Simulated assay, not measured.
Amino acid sequence: MSRILVSIVVIAAALYLALCAGLWVFQRALIYFPQPGSADSATTQMRLVVDEAQVLVSVRPRDGPQALIYFGGNAEDVSANLPQFAQAFADHALYLMHYRGFGGSSGSPSEEAIAADALALFDQVYADHRQVVVIGRSLGSGVAVRLASQRPVARLILITPYNSLEELAARQLPIFPVRWLLRDRYDAWKYARRIQVPTLLLAAEHDEVIPRASTERLLQQFAPGVARLEVIPGTGHNSIAASPRYLPLLRKGM
């Protein structure tokens, strides 16, 4: 092998290792895209103090046993759902969690931090409402299914869900050893196996972010008879909530 060829190989290897190091260091900047809260200042907010972080939750209070907890996507302002949910779920108290770094919450997002915050929120809500429906959309579907495997939720609804984030990342970055680099894996399949409550998986027909195959692999992880899949035709990953079938299917899942 010539000296020039050796030099090219060494430079290419060094560049590849540098890119791997960059993915390791900056990976969370590629997963989470914090958004400010857009709801008006009159919106009721609950403040959770968890591990020295302050996590904000947009709330529509309601007395009674029924409540809904919502976990959004990786670039979602969850408070924007509040007017729509308030009309659709009139009998439920609503709790929409802003991940760390999102919507005024302090701290930085990570899988373990968000999972801990989700448990803290559920425990506080469950003290006042004994029938808690948990909804997770996109990234939040992984948060929701993990929570439902650890707490007595009444029902579980997963919107545009995935089997695992590792699987999606490997599809997007096939030349990198994602299995060894990824810190936040969101292995929804692992927690789905433990779910015993009625579960609805809601998919977009033309989801350009999460392949249908990933959603269907997750569906197969649930025990027989626990989960079912509904596909909303003519929708994409970010347009599913605009479909006239979206809220009726959510209500049906509850």
Results as ranks from 00 to 15, higher is better:
residue 26 F to G: 06
residue 46 M to V: 07
residue 68 L to M: 13
residue 26 F to Y: 14
residue 60 R to Q: 12
residue 38 S to V: 13
residue 37 G to W: 03
residue 36 P to I: 01
residue 63 D to Q: 14
residue 57 V to T: 00
residue 65 P to W: 03
residue 36 P to C: 05
residue 53 A to M: 12
residue 63 D to L: 10
residue 53 A to D: 15
residue 45 Q to I: 13
residue 50 V to G: 05
residue 26 F to T: 08
residue 55 V to S: 00
residue 39 A to V: 03
residue 30 L to N: 07
residue 70 Y to S: 11
residue 49 V to R: 10
residue 39 A to Y: 00
residue 43 T to Y: 00
residue 64 G to P: 09
residue 45 Q to T: 14
residue 52 E to K: 11
residue 64 G to D: 09
residue 57 V to C: 03
residue 56 L to D: 00
residue 63 D to R: 12
residue 45 Q to K: 13
residue 50 V to E: 08
residue 56 L to R: 09
residue 69 I to P: 01
residue 52 E to L: 13
residue 31 I to L: 14
residue 34 P to A: 03
residue 52 E to W: 13
residue 49 V to T: 12
residue 59 V to G: 02
residue 27 Q to D: 08
residue 66 Q to D: 15
residue 62 R to I: 01
residue 58 S to L: 03
residue 48 L to K: 03
residue 43 T to R: 00
residue 66 Q to L: 14
residue 55 V to A: 00
residue 38 S to L: 15
residue 64 G to K: 07
residue 42 A to T: 15
residue 39 A to H: 01
residue 34 P to C: 06
residue 43 T to F: 02
residue 32 Y to P: 01
residue 29 A to P: 00
residue 39 A to C: 09
residue 31 I to H: 00
residue 65 P to G: 11
residue 58 S to T: 13
residue 68 L to V: 15
residue 68 L to G: 02
residue 40 D to R: 09
residue 33 F to P: 01
residue 60 R to C: 04
residue 28 R to P: 08
residue 66 Q to S: 13
residue 45 Q to F: 06
residue 25 V to C: 11
residue 39 A to W: 02
residue 29 A to N: 11
residue 25 V to Q: 12
residue 63 D to H: 12
residue 50 V to A: 04
residue 66 Q to A: 11
residue 54 Q to K: 14
residue 65 P to S: 14
residue 31 I to Y: 04
residue 70 Y to G: 05
residue 46 M to I: 05
residue 29 A to V: 06
residue 42 A to C: 11
residue 71 F to L: 06
residue 53 A to V: 07
residue 40 D to K: 11
residue 40 D to H: 11
residue 49 V to C: 02
residue 42 A to Y: 07
residue 45 Q to D: 02
residue 27 Q to C: 09
residue 69 I to W: 01
residue 58 S to D: 12
residue 29 A to K: 12
residue 71 F to C: 02
residue 63 D to P: 03
residue 70 Y to T: 09
residue 49 V to E: 12
residue 49 V to L: 10
residue 56 L to S: 09
residue 52 E to G: 02
residue 56 L to V: 04
residue 59 V to H: 11
residue 35 Q to P: 05
residue 52 E to Y: 11
residue 37 G to M: 03
residue 34 P to R: 01
residue 29 A to D: 07
residue 27 Q to H: 13
residue 67 A to M: 07
residue 60 R to Y: 06
residue 36 P to V: 08
residue 66 Q to R: 14
residue 55 V to M: 04
residue 34 P to L: 01
residue 61 P to C: 01
residue 65 P to M: 08
residue 60 R to D: 03
residue 64 G to L: 09
residue 50 V to N: 06
residue 30 L to P: 02
residue 67 A to L: 10
residue 50 V to R: 10
residue 39 A to N: 05
residue 25 V to W: 14
residue 53 A to H: 14
residue 45 Q to V: 08
residue 64 G to Y: 09
residue 47 R to N: 08
residue 70 Y to A: 04
residue 69 I to S: 05
residue 32 Y to V: 04
residue 39 A to I: 05
residue 52 E to F: 13
residue 45 Q to E: 12
residue 58 S to N: 14
residue 62 R to N: 12
residue 43 T to C: 10
residue 68 L to C: 03
residue 42 A to E: 12
residue 26 F to M: 04
residue 51 D to T: 04
residue 38 S to Y: 12
residue 33 F to D: 04
residue 25 V to M: 10
